[in-house]
Each structure stands twice: as structure tokens, then as C-alpha cells.
């Protein structure tokens, strides 16, 4: 039932077969299929609608070249559009070399993969020659500190935690501890929170003000549906985060949420999380994500060659 876009477009190819040009009539059919496929991939309905309008316009424009069919042309336009929307180039972490330690703060909904990501990032930074410290500022979730400590041990990075249920104190003391231990980067794990939880959102906000992070990263589950947009928007309105981490991409979700978030908050997706183990982390590549959402890498390269 959840055909990939490429499957749907195959069908559209057939419907359009024999029609040599893109016109108002056949484009309507193609656009309806593309829209449904985007929604099936969890692209936000408003984003999908706008995307379709853009694609329609581009398709009716001048770009049609003789050597490929109109349908193939449309596929290429969709792919380019998605890649472009997701930010074109890969965006690296931006840590100030002057500030010691540089600060990375991590926030997001419950269960999205924040704590695991903190450990993964610590490992990655360590491998690149940095001396990271992890700070446990989730003082609510049962055993959140134990979890971070266990993960810290796995990646051989020290973890700072306090006994008290005070996230601000934990964060600030952690920062201080990192400074006196001459660490060059701290990664602060925070509790999961809903965007409508005013108390918890205010906590995140004051953590940000106190820590002044170089990078505030919003962690989001790639299986998320239509709500991804509202959530990301609410977090961004409140925290003005610097980048997004997309998790659980080792699953088989299409990850249309990535596109929606990118489109609505205009912040780059920086990392993808691809498993439960501490080295299951990768950089985000917009073109690969576009292919995943569309399920159509082969078709794109086919059109590219044409």
C-alpha cells in the first residue's frame, strides 16, 4: 500500500506514455500521484502542497529537453527540488575554536534518541582529536544518568552528573568541571519534552541562555509523521536551534519529516543516527535523503545520463 514514489511514477509513466509534451492535462495526473506519494512518505501536507505547485510550474516551463520523456523529466525536477529544499550541501558542526570548552546542547521530544546521540557525537569528536565531556542534564527520566554514564563508558568519555534534581545546576557545574579538566568540548544531554509543556520548554530556554551553546541540536525521530513540523517549529520558535539530528534511519521509514522540518524551520540537518550502537552516526547528505524519500535512486541516475 505504501508504494515508493518511484513505483507510483512508473504508473504515471504508463498513463503518460505516448504524450510527447507536458501539458495542463497530463501534469494534473502526475502531480496528484506525486502528492500522494509525498504524503505517504510523511512529508507534511502543507509542504507537499507547496512543493507540488513549484514542481508543476517548473514542469510546465522551459526545461523540457528532447532526449527524455516528460515523465522522466518530472522525476528529475522532483528530485532536484527535494535536494534543494533539504539544503543542497552538507553542513558541518560549527564549534568556536576560541571558546573553551565549546558547548553542544541537545534537545527534543521524549524517546527521540538524544542520549544515544550525545554518546555517538562524543565518540566522533574524540576520534577527530577533541577531548569531550558529557554532561547529564536530564534529571527526570528514570535512570537517564545511569544510561549516559553507561554510554560514556562505552565511548570512553567522562560523564558529569549531580545527585540533585536541578538541570540548570547540573549543566553549569558540568561546564565548570569541563573547564577545570581542560576539556575542549562539552555535550549536554537534556530531558525529553513536549513542545506544549511550558515549564519544560522554559527550562530548555534558560539552559540555552546559561550555556550559550555553539551548537544547539534538535533531535527528531525519522519515523515521525505530520506532527514533525509543528514540533520542530515550536522548538525553533523557543530555542532557535542551530541544526537537526535525524534518528533511527536504520529503519524503513521514508523520512519525509526531514524535508518538512527543513522546509519549515530552515535549519540544516547535520547528522543522521543509524543504529543503537555508539558508532552508528553519519553526516547528513541532502541528495541521499531525497532519494530515500522518493525511493528512486536508480531513476534519477537514469535521467541524469539521458
Amino acid at each position: 500500500m505504501f508504494d515508493s514514489l518511484s513505483d507510483k511514477l512508473e504508473a504515471t509513466f504508463k498513463k503518460l506514455a505516448g504524450q510527447a509534451t507536458i501539458n495542463e492535462i497530463n501534469i494534473g495526473l502526475a502531480m496528484r500521484d506525486i502528492k500522494r506519494a509525498l504524503l505517504g512518505a510523511d512529508v507534511n501536507y502543507k509542504v507537499a502542497k507547496k512543493l507540488i505547485d513549484d514542481i508543476r510550474e517548473k514542469s510546465l516551463g522551459e526545461q523540457v529537453i528532447k532526449s527524455v520523456s516528460p515523465a522522466q523529466m518530472i522525476v528529475k525536477i522532483v528530485y532536484d527540488e527535494l535536494t534543494e529544499l533539504m539544503g543542497g550541501e552538507q553542513k558541518p558542526l560549527n564549534l568556536s575554536p576560541k571558546k573553551l570548552p565549546a558547548v553542544i546542547m541537545v534537545a527534543g521530544l521524549q524517546g527521540s534518541g538524544k542520549t544515544t546521540f550525545c554518546a555517538k557525537l562524543a565518540l566522533r569528536l574524540k576520534k577527530s582529536g577533541k577531548q569531550p565531556m558529557l554532561v547529564a542534564a536530564d534529571v527526570y527520566r528514570p535512570a537517564a544518568i545511569d544510561q549516559l554514564k553507561a554510554l560514556g563508558q562505552q565511548v570512553d568519555v567522562p560523564v558529569f552528573a549531580i545527585e540533585e534534581q536541578d538541570a540548570m545546576k547540573a549543566a553549569l557545574q558540568g561546564l565548570e568541571a569541563a573547564r577545570s579538566a581542560a576539556k575542549d568540548v562539552v555535550i549536554v544531554d537534556t530531558a525529553g519534552r513536549l513542545q506544549i509543556d511550558q515549564v519544560m520548554m522554559a527550562e530548555a530556554e534558560s539552559l540555552k541562555h546559561a550555556l550559550k551553546p555553539d551548537e544547539l541540536l534538535f533531535v527528531v525521530d525519522s519515523m515521525m509523521g505530520q506532527e514533525a513540523v509543528n514540533t520542530a517549529k515550536a522548538f525553533n520558535d523557543r530555542l532557535d536551534f542551530d541544526g537537526v539530528v535525524l534518528t533511527k534511519l536504520d529503519g524503513d521509514s521514508r523520512g519525509g519529516a526531514a524535508l518538512s522540518i527543513r522546509q519549515v524551520v530552515e535549519k540544516p540537518i547535520k547528522f543522521i543516527s543509524i543504529g543503537e550502537k555508539v558508532d552508528d552516526l553519519d553526516l547528513f547528505y541532502p541528495d541521499r535523503m531525497a532519494q530515500r524519500i522518493l525511493g528512486m535512486g536508480d531513476i534519477v541516475s537514469f535521467v541524469e545520463k539521458a
Binding site: G40, A41, D42, M223, M224, G225, Q226, A228, R254, G256
Partner: peptide, 11 residues
């Protein structure tokens, strides 16, 4: 099931 899950929940 996480209530925020999209189409993947069916899979």
C-alpha cells in the same frame, strides 16, 4: 506505538 509516528507505524 509512539502516537507521533507517521505512515511507518503500519509497517
Amino acid at each position: 506505538l509512539d502516537g507521533t509516528t507517521g505512515q511507518n507505524a503500519v509497517l
